[in-house]
Design a protein around this nucleic acid. Structure first.
Length: 281
DNA sequence: ATGACCGGTCGTACCGGA
């Protein structure tokens, strides 16, 4: 069985490359992130031509996740239980401005964004995840990111209790160690490398999820993201922020895993490369 | 050369991305 995860940075903009990649790599299951479209806008017919069913979760311009599978997609879950939404920054009122309290229900529970979708594919429970960015460590978005990870931990703990093969892969927006960024000094004071974010990943591993580290194919570290700007990819100045977490028994069956850097080359790539994982049946 | 931001949107600048 071949599984893969890829942040495509807009499935519409990436469609020709996505279809070509499916034909070349032939994964049985592909988890997508940042599809950036509603479910009704997803190119389900195009991927169906290649034999893939699509489970899709989208809310418009931002975010968006999907699971493509040619070995079945059952028990689709849009989001996970307890998943928080983003309430936004609290605006400081102008001087003399009347403070208007927001609607209580809205303030206490904003709607979750399209950042997680689960599906059972060929007996494997698969989650495609797109963690919040966090923006800056001082921002409300960063607090939201940590809340989202805490809720994810609770949800995955329940999933692991089901005692079936489990994969939780996608764009975690956290580099697990300093080795996972091209220059740690550049990231001092930035998100993606802070101790609370790394602790959130460690808490997932403590549940029994294993980090399936792919082969980098080039260079010493398996980066999965390179900024579009300033020739970062060509200089291999990247980050490992896309992760493939799997339950122990499933991880034991992994034969090989690699970052497909070829998909980051050429005209019109995503800024992320896919991770491809081959598992013994 | 892999080659020096990109995608989205009521847009022709700006936000979000990381």
């Amino acid at each position: 069985m071949r599984l893969a995860t890829w942040n495509v940075n807009s499935v519409k903009a990436r469609l020709p490359r996505l279809l070509a990649w499916l034909e070349a790599a032939k994964p049985d299951v592909l988890c997508l992130q940042e599809t950036k479209c509603r479910a009704d806008q997803f190119p389900s017919a195009e991927v169906a031509e290649l034999g893939y069913e699509a489970a899709v979760h989208g809310d418009g311009r931002w975010n968006g996740v999907a699971v493509l599978s040619r070995i079945g997609v059952d028990d689709i879950a849009l989001g996970f239980p307890g998943e928080p939404g983003y309430a936004g920054e609290a605006a400081d009122p102008e001087e003399g401005e009347q403070i208007v309290l927001p609607d209580l229900a809205e303030a206490s529970s904003p709607s979750p964004e399209a950042r997680a979708i689960g599906a059972t594919c060929g007996g494997v429970r698969v989650w495609s995840l797109y963690a919040p960015n966090g923006r800056t460590p001082e921002s409300a978005h960063y607090a939201y990111k940590l809340e989202w990870f805490a809720a994810l931990r609770t949800a995955l703990e329940a999933e692991l209790a089901q005692d079936r093969p489990l994969v939780a892969c996608g764009d975690y927006n956290v580099a697990p160690t300093d080795e996972d960024v091209w220059d740690p000094s550049v990231f001092v004071g930035s998100t993606h490398v802070t101790p609370p974010e790394r602790q959130a990943l460690a808490a997932l591993r403590e549940l029994g999820l294993r980090d399936v580290v792919p082969s980098p194919m080039k260079g010493p570290r398996p980066y999965t993201y390179w900024d579009y700007r300033a020739g970062m990819f060509h200089k291999n100045m990247g980050m490992r922020i896309d992760l493939f977490y799997a339950s122990e028994a499933f991880a034991d069956r992994v034969g090989s895993a690699y970052v497909d850097r070829e998909a980051r080359k050429g005209k019109g790539p995503s800024d992320h490369a896919p991770i491809v994982v081959d598992v013994q049946d």
